[in-house]
């Protein structure tokens, strides 16, 4: 079994749907960090069957808002002195700007220069985000 050391300080992003950790790594801009980041794929899970986990070392001011857009079921564990001091679920922001892109080929965002991709949370229960211009829903994988 793969052995990855524990964190003394940092974050563990748990319950990521299997296969999505790379996407989250990119979205959160973790490639820009110079501390240790571990991506663990296909971990056995009683609840999910398989899941992904990301471990991030260090006390970074990361914006986890986008996790709520991607998957509000992800858990964020905050680690201090080797212990989980806080467990939280990502919030779903009312608006998301410049993070996700509208994939509707007929949307004005495909041709209008300098237009920021902007989404609004239209159904908090289902976590549906719609493009503020063409109203196409953002499709998670």
């Amino acid at each position: 079994m793969l052995n990855i050391s524990g964190l003394s300080e940092g974050y563990v992003l748990d319950h990521i749907r299997a296969g999505e950790c790379m996407e989250i790594y990119t979205w959160l801009g973790l490639d820009k960090l110079d501390t240790e980041v571990a991506l663990i794929k296909n971990v056995k899970s009683k609840k999910m069957g398989k899941k992904d986990i990301i471990k991030i070392e260090g006390d970074h001011s990361l914006n986890f808002d986008m996790l709520g857009v991607m998957d509000p079921n992800i858990t964020i564990d905050v680690i201090k002195e080797g212990k989980i001091v806080e467990k939280r679920k990502p919030s779903m922001p009312e608006f998301v700007e410049g993070i996700i892109k509208c994939k509707n080929p007929r949307c004005i965002t495909t041709i209008e220069q300098g237009l920021t991709h902007r989404f609004r949370l239209t159904n908090p229960e289902k976590g549906t985000y719609r493009c503020v211009y063409c109203e196409q829903s953002f499709k998670k994988r």
């Binding site: 007929r106 965002t109 209008e112 211009y133 063409c134």
Partner: peptide, 10 residues
């Protein structure tokens, strides 16, 4: 009137 969806919103 615009062929692209959302143009009047912009």
């Amino acid at each position: 009137r615009h062929p692209k969806e959302g143009a009047p919103q912009v």
